[in-house]
Amino acid sequence: MAAEAIACEELAVGHGGKAIMSGITFALKPGRILAVVGPSGCGKSTLMRALSGLDDPVSGSSRLLGRDLTSVSTEEREQALRRLGFLFQGSALFSSLTLRENVELPIREFLSPPRREQRQLAEYKLSLVGLADAMDKLPSEISGGMAKRAALARALALDPEVLFLDEPGAGLDPLTAARMDELILRVREAFGTTIVMVSHEVPSILRTADFCVYLDTETGRMEAYAPPRDFLSLGAHPRAYAFFQQNHRN
C-alpha cells in the first residue's frame, strides 16, 4: 500500500479549464478521515471529484493510492475507481431498484459471486448501516436519512480503500446526522478505510475528521491543512477560524 492514500501538490480545480480553487497541497495517510471545508461555492465538491479521479484537475498533481490518475488510461482509471466508494449529496440511489438491489448492483457487476453470496454481502452491508428491515423497499419509500445510509451501504459494497462522502449530514436532523458520523467512524475503524468528506457542518467535522482542508473563497486558494481543533483558536488561519466560529455557534 502507498505511504499516502492521497497526496496532491499545487492542485487547482475548476470547470472548463478555469480554476476556481488553487494552491491545494496536502498528504493524507491511509485510514485517516479528511474533511474538505469551506463556504458554499468554494469548490469542495469539485475538489472531491478531482481527488477521486471523476474529473481532471485544472493543473497541479494529485496521487490517489500511489497513482496519478491524470496520466493513466481510461481502463486503468476505471479500475482505480472500483477501489473507491462514493456517497453523493443527493444519495443517488437508483430509483427503480430496491435498497438490496442497489447494493447488489456493484457486487454483481464487479465481483460476480454466486447469487446466494451476492445476497449475503448486500444484506450484510445494509445491516451495517441499520437497514436490515428495509432491504426490499424502493428509495421513494424511505426517509432522507435512510437513503443516505443506503447510499453508504452501496458505497461500501466493494470494500473500498478510499471513501468519498459529499455532505453526508446534509438535510439530516442533528440526531440522525450524529448517527451518520458514528457510522462513518465505525466504518473507518472496522475497514481501515481512508475517508474524504465534504462538509460544512462543524460539529460533525469535529466529531469525525482527523484533518481538515479549508478552502478560502476570498483568495481562491487553500488556506490551511490541519487538524480541525486547530481552527477553534485564532492562530495562523484567521478565515478558517472565523468560519468555524460562525458555524459552531449556529
Partner: peptide
C-alpha cells in the same frame, strides 16, 4: 457492527 446499528424507522 451489522447487529448493533439501530434502525430508527420500522419497516
Amino acid at each position: 457492527m451489522a447487529e448493533t446499528v439501530a434502525v430508527t424507522e420500522t419497516a
